[in-house]
C-alpha cells in the first residue's frame, strides 16, 4: 500500500466519480427503460429533467478525468522513486499484475466518454432528441467500464509493495526480454515504419476523399501502429539511445515533458478521427472532425519524425 498524497488525491476523486456516476447510472437505466418521446405524462417530463442531471454528471466526470489522466501518469512517475529498481512509470505499472490493464482501460474510457459527449451533442441538437435512449444505453456500458477502472485503480495502489524489487523500463522494454511487450521487437523496423507512414498516407487519402468510415478505421489502426512504432523506433531517438525503448521516461523533465505533448496529440487526433465514423453527423460537424483529426495527427507525425531527422542532421548517422 502506498499512502502518497497524490495517490490519495486520485482515490478521493475516484470516490466522487463513483458516487456521481452511480447516480447517473441509475438515471440512465430509468431513462433507458421508460423513455417515450411521445408521452405527455408527468413521468416523461421528469425523465427529461433527469437527463440533464445525468448529462451534467457525465460531462463533469469527463472534464476532470482528462487532466486527471495526465496527473495519474505523473503520479506513476513520482512513486517510481519509491520502488527499488523502478526508474520511471513503467516500473510502477509493472509492479502489480493490474498496472498495464489499468492503463489501457483508462485510455479506453477516455475515448468512451469522449464518444458519449459526441452522441450527447448530436442528440440535443435535434428537437426529437433522437439519441437519448441510445446515449444512456451507451452510458450504462461505459459506467461498467468506469466501475472496473475505479476498482482496479484502488486494487493496484493497494497492492504495490514498496519493499519488493521491480523491473526498470530497461528490462521491460528490451528485445531480449520475454514479456508480451517485447514481442513487438520481432517486427522489422523497415516494415514498422512503412506501416506507420503508410497508415498515415491512407488517412490523408481518406481525408481528401471524405470516406468517413475508412477514415475512422485508419485512425483506429493508427493508435496501435503509432504506439508500437513510438516504443520501437521513435522513442530511441528521443533518448538518443538505441537500446532505450521506454514509453514512460520521456514524460520526465529530462526530456522536457515532451511525452505529454506526444500522447495528447495522438489522443486528440485519433479521437476526432474515430468520431467521424461513429455516428451520423451534420456535414459541418463532420468536416470539423476531419480537419481537427488531420491537424493533430499531422502534428504528431511531424513531431515524432523530427527526432530522428534532427539526430541524423547533427550526427550524420542513424541509431
Amino acid at each position: 500500500m502506498i499512502l502518497a498524497p497524490e495517490v490519495l488525491a486520485i482515490l478521493i476523486l475516484n470516490s466522487i466519480f463513483l458516487l456521481f456516476s452511480l447516480v447517473a447510472f441509475v438515471l440512465s437505466v430509468r431513462i433507458f427503460i421508460k423513455w417515450d418521446m411521445s408521452a405527455t405524462t408527468q413521468e416523461q417530463y421528469g425523465l427529461e429533467k433527469q437527463s440533464f442531471l445525468a448529462a451534467t454528471i457525465i460531462k463533469y466526470i469527463f472534464a476532470i478525468k482528462l487532466p486527471l489522466f495526465l496527473f495519474f501518469v505523473f503520479t506513476l512517475d513520482k512513486i517510481s522513486t519509491l520502488l527499488t529498481g523502478a526508474m520511471c512509470g513503467a516500473g510502477v505499472v509493472d509492479a502489480t499484475d493490474y498496472g498495464s490493464y489499468l492503463l489501457i482501460l483508462k485510455l479506453m474510457n477516455l475515448y468512451l466518454f469522449g464518444f458519449w459527449l459526441t452522441l450527447h451533442y448530436l442528440d440535443i441538437k435535434s428537437p426529437n432528441l433522437p439519441y437519448t435512449r441510445l446515449k444512456f444505453e451507451f452510458f450504462i456500458v461505459a459506467f461498467l467500464f468506469l466501475l472496473v477502472e475505479i476498482v482496479l485503480e484502488g486494487v493496484m495502489f493497494g497492492s504495490i509493495d514498496i519493499d519488493k524489487m521491480v523491473s526498470c523500463c530497461g528490462t521491460l522494454y528490451s528485445s531480449s526480454s520475454t514479456s508480451a511487450i517485447s514481442g513487438i521487437f520481432s517486427i522489422d523496423t523497415t516494415v514498422m515504419l512503412t506501416l506507420f507512414y503508410g497508415n498515415f498516407l491512407f488517412m490523408v487519402i481518406f481525408y481528401m476523399m471524405r470516406y468517413q468510415y475508412l477514415f475512422a478505421i485508419s485512425n483506429l489502426a493508427f493508435i496501435v501502429v503509432a504506439l508500437i512504432s513510438l516504443i520501437q523506433f521513435f522513442g530511441t531517438y528521443i533518448y538518443e539511445l538505441p537500446t532505450h525503448h521506454c514509453p514512460f521516461c520521456f514524460l520526465q523533465s529530462d526530456y522536457y515533458f515532451v511525452g505529454y505533448l506526444i500522447y495528447s496529440l495522438l489522443f486528440l487526433g485519433t479521437f476526432y478521427g474515430m468520431r467521424v465514423g461513429v455516428v451520423k453527423m451534420l456535414d459541418e460537424d463532420r468536416g470539423k472532425g476531419f480537419k481537427l483529426s488531420m491537424i493533430f495527427n499531422g502534428v504528431y507525425v511531424v513531431l515524432v519524425t523530427a527526432y530522428p531527422i534532427f539526430y541524423f542532421i547533427r550526427n550524420g548517422v542513424w541509431l
Partner: peptide
C-alpha cells in the same frame, strides 16, 4: 509545481462536484 496540481485536484473539482445537484435542481 506538482503541489499546485495536487492541491488543485483536491479543491476545485470537489467544490464543483458539490454544486452539481443543487445547480441542476435550480435549473430545472
Amino acid at each position: 509545481i506538482q503541489t499546485l496540481f495536487l492541491v488543485f485536484f483536491l479543491s476545485v473539482p470537489i467544490y464543483i462536484a458539490a454544486t452539481i445537484i443543487p445547480s441542476w435542481r435550480a435549473a430545472t
